[in-house]
């Protein structure tokens, strides 16, 4: 399929800048409030309670229990919400990379599953495949990374 060739112009630059600023703004709108909430929770017992609850499960991926918050936010809301939690939780390089690969495969389930359904795929299959890839990659990265 060939599309009509457009010409490079100042508009290109403008559109690119606008797109970049838009992504940054969409991100900021979510990251900032989540950062405040998580930072606040860090100073209450709530984060420790969640952390202890999920630490046996998260240990499989080499992650601290509190990382469960990142995975929940990423899947229920979107990647930006997960990133807001990631940056506020002070995680290591390995923990960040394990979370990033798991989230890359599986995120924003309500919105993206609806899209896949619209094209005709079964929601259960799509979620199973994505969650499966996320779990496998998380286990593998935990073993692979130092």
């Amino acid at each position: 399929m060939q599309k009509a060739r457009k010409i490079l112009s100042q508009d290109t630059l403008k559109r690119g800048l606008a797109a970049g600023v838009d992504v940054t703004w969409q991100l900021a709108k979510i990251i900032i409030p989540i950062y405040f909430i998580v930072t606040f929770l860090k100073h209450t017992p709530a984060l420790d309670i969640v952390s202890n609850l999920f630490s046996p499960l998260m240990r499989l991926f080499g992650l601290p229990g509190k990382a469960a918050i990142v995975l929940v936010l990423g899947n229920v809301v979107n990647l930006y919400a997960a990133i807001g939690a990631m940056v506020s939780l002070s995680l290591s390089y390995k923990e960040l990379t394990v979370l990033a690969i798991m989230l890359s495969f599986c995120h924003s389930l309500p919105v993206e599953t609806a899209l896949a359904k619209k094209i005709g795929l079964s929601a259960v299959n799509v979620i199973a495949v994505r969650a499966g890839l996320a779990i496998l990659s998380g286990l593998a990265f935990n073993l692979m990374l130092q």
């Binding site: 490079l8 112009s9 508009d11 690119g16 940054t24």
Partner: peptide, 30 residues
Amino acid sequence: AAVGSFLSVKQIAFIVIPLMVFMEILKDAG
């Protein structure tokens, strides 16, 4: 929270904005 979230967003903006400009150039140049 204010300082931390601002720095995170700034860090991401420095990478995302040039990337989006680059992608737009790739699109428009065919």
